[in-house]
Design a protein around this nucleic acid. Structure first.
Lengths: 197, 197
DNA sequence: CTCATTCTAGAGCGATCGTTTTAGAACATC
DNA sequence: GATGTTCTAAAACGATCGCTCTAGAATGAG
């Protein structure tokens, strides 16, 4: 019926995501995106509608491939306490290795407060992450690997907070001792009480 | 020797800080700043040199009047454990009441990664906050109000991380139960062990 | 092949960016 | 009160912003 598209959607969306990730939403221009994607602005608009729509698409793809993938992988194959430990350790390792930080956290501060649509997506994904921690804590309390004393809800809330905090700290102070120390201390929260006195 | 300035430095810097705080560095234009400050762009440049220099000035002022003031006030008049509790509770209350969030955290993600000069300022201030927590933990361990079991360094690192995390979460999910729950759980970290079994 | 449709390329839209220039008003010094 | 410096006001600098338009090339359906 017409001419076929010359580019691969997956490849160009990866390129666009990298730009938003690296530079933020506002600081990434359409020409910048087009150059990285190998597209002229007109093709970009023809294919994705607007800069805003393209960003929403990139953010969704990013979250599916990073956060959601990690949750499903860990929850399927690890006991609950280990799943939490591995999650935090992976966040620390990622934060130290990748100077772009986390697109979700970056966007929570830059975009969410001024964009209700993106803000709702981000809030929902953060709630998903909190729910993952909550399920792990409940299961860990049941199998005895996690202390039963504190509220599972609050424990999950603090774990979520810790992940956010690690992501922020790593942008200004990407120091292994700092991030690893904080994560280590967060994990001791989970320890069942051992009567030492 | 010459004509005297018509505006009050404190007032215009307050206005500029509010704009940067509310909208971020990149999203705040010089015309925007000038309008808020009651200055024409030429006066702004004459007085402060550049948008970047103005931002650096605003950030410094902000940190002195918020973070540093809070640390000094709490450390002078509160026992160490109470100082930490009050600090976290004030952060939660502020986060819930002020939709602008924290200029330090906002800038740590938006500006620090792409601006070595501002990045160094932010890293130094975060280290100051960590040091405050560390001093409180040491003193609290000495007076018995804080558990002696974990490393004081790691405890301080996690408290710093928690503050950062609360500030991020509040921008996308300004829910009292979420922030208060996370802060409450962070504070239980400090409890000396009570043998319950 | 013809034709309608959708693609790409690149110039160009008005608006706004950070910054500077130009012109003139206000003040401290001599 | 003249002088010289520093202020304010407003226009304007080139560059870039998100986005669209105009051409023309490429394709599938009939």
């Amino acid at each position: 019926m017409a001419r076929t598209r010359e580019f691969d959607d997956n490849a160009v969306l990866d390129a666009a995501t990298d730009r938003f990730w690296r530079q933020g939403y506002a600081a990434t221009s359409v020409r910048d995106l087009g150059e990285a994607m190998g597209l002229v602005p007109a093709s970009l608009y023809n294919a994705f509608g607007s800069k805003h729509a393209l960003f929403a698409l990139c953010l969704d793809r990013y979250l599916d491939r990073n956060m959601r993938e990690r949750i499903e992988r860990l929850e399927a194959k690890q006991p609950p306490r280990v799943a939490i430990e591995t999650f935090l350790n992976e966040i620390v390792a990622r934060s130290l290795a990748d100077p772009r930080g986390c697109l979700l956290v970056n966007s929570a501060l830059e975009v969410a407060p001024h964009d209700a649509e993106i803000g709702a997506v981000i809030a929902a994904r953060l709630a998903e992450l909190e729910a993952f921690f909550h399920r792990c804590v409940i299961a860990g309390q049941r199998d005895g690997s996690i202390t039963a004393a504190p509220s599972a809800r609050d424990l999950a809330r603090l774990l979520l907070t810790t992940v956010m905090g690690l992501r922020v700290l790593s942008r200004a102070r990407p120091e292994p001792a700092l991030l690893r120390g904080a994560a280590r201390q967060a994990l001791t929260l989970l320890d069942p009480p051992a009567c030492t006195n």
